[in-house]
Design a protein around this nucleic acid. Structure first.
Lengths: 246, 246
DNA sequence: TTTATATGATAGTTTTACTATTATACACAA
DNA sequence: TTGTGTATAATAGTAAAACTATCATATAAA
């Protein structure tokens, strides 16, 4: 089995120099993921990163203006990766319900399968996104950062999901809001199950948490778009709307 | 018309001294809300706050250990306030659907009505919660902070909502996840409409954004719990589940 | 060989996030 | 009235964070 290596293209405004192109750049990405996972983005800084990779603060500043940019870079990379996987795995799938199920599993699950970027531990990055990813686009400076295109990956992924929603039910009124809600809900419920269990019904015990999250998301999506998860063909019309009395 | 002044009780672990009890304390709360709104929580610090209220950093440190605690205090205050209003306004309401509609409006809307805490501008605080409230409980240190009871208000509010969901449909499988989802979705869509419009279908133009958010949330809730927003009595059974063909 | 580029080593500045000390003002109690 | 306690102000200081600047060195490309 050959190992495919994919290089995701990240908004070049986010870095001063492309980290994927150099040894030091890749080390910065690799170890910032590990360090941020260990200590959280608030405690993390370039001095600690420099020590870890045996380089200097000044060298890291040649790649990223500041830690916030590095952080957004990583979050962007994550969403690009999710979008890439969804697009790859749904490429030849016609049934929008099947597509949605594939997408939901990818959104809730970070376990590496078909692709490999050798210097990024996608599972660890997923942990960071679940815990702190939200911070990337919740700040006073959203508007300027949005103008720079810092959130394109997330917005593009949201569109991919929203389009599937509309395919399932073309009459559904809020495909984009629903798509962003699903993305947030997936991460939130993983986080809540692990840290704030009163905010969710899912528990970390026993079987895989990912499976439970996917099950719940499917339930939400198919109930909302009026299609039962376990479809009863005679009660569901072709375009996915439920046939009801009267 | 008499003016009622309510003093919400906030977890005393969050402050070193109760700010509601003193002139300086109230000034700290009042102006931290205004300053955080102006510059965002990242730019905000005790030095700037001290300058604004013509006091000193050291004096502010006698009330709050650090700005993170002050921030969580404010967020807690906000959720206590929302919970208080929901409980007041649904106190004598029996119909869970009516209760839910009242709760949703309160969740999406910050305009002051029945109560007044003279030193807190609830509308400005709402802006902060919409933009950055999420940061209060997304960090590496959630577990310790949760142990200290820093998130009790949010969790209690979530329970209030989840209970209404269960009243509407006792068979609904995920009342808590759904409640937290609604809370997050309300704030997110206000924020998205204002800053990241591709993540929502709602627009800030024309009529009140709050109305649109409430309409959408009602749509989500009643579709999910199988009750139409504009109820057709003959198609809806007493416990709120939709009667369907077969 | 020259030149450009990347990194490292070192040192420095400014701002943030605190801590400590002393002074003052005011409330209340004896 | 004096004394005591408490809150705040004024001032000063420290440690770390968040950068910036300079120069030396290694390596690769022209």
């Amino acid at each position: 089995m050959s190992r495919m290596s994919v290089n995701l293209v990240i908004n070049s405004n986010l870095c001063l120099r492309d980290p994927a192109q150099t040894e030091l750049g890749r080390k910065i990405i690799q170890h910032s993921v590990l360090l941020i996972d260990e200590m959280g983005i608030d405690e993390f800084n370039f001095k600690k990163l420099a020590q870890r990779i045996k380089s200097t603060e000044a060298s890291i500043y040649r790649y990223f203006e500041n830690k916030h940019h590095l952080f957004i870079y990583l979050i962007n990379w994550y969403w690009e990766w999710v979008k890439f996987r969804i697009e790859m795995q749904t490429m030849n799938v016609l049934d929008p319900i099947r597509k949605m199920k594939i997408a939901l599993r990818i959104i809730a699950d970070s376990s590496r399968r078909n692709m490999e970027t050798p210097y990024i531990d996608e599972d660890v990055l997923h942990t960071i996104v679940v815990r702190e990813g939200i911070k990337a686009y919740h700040s006073k400076s959203v508007d300027e950062e949005n103008k720079e295109g810092y959130f394109l990956a997330y917005k593009a992924l949201c569109k991919v999901l929203a389009d599937i929603v509309s395919e399932i039910n073309p009459h559904f009124k809020y495909p984009k809001a629903f798509a962003s809600m699903i993305l947030e809900t997936a991460n939130n419920n993983i986080y809540f199950a692990q840290h704030l269990p009163r905010l969710t019904d899912l528990r970390e015990t026993g079987e895989n948490l990912t499976d439970k999250v996917v099950e719940m998301l499917e339930h939400f999506v198919f109930k909302m778009t009026k299609i039962e998860s376990v479809a009863r063909p005679e009660a569901v019309s072709k375009n996915g709307t439920t046939i009801r009395a009267n």
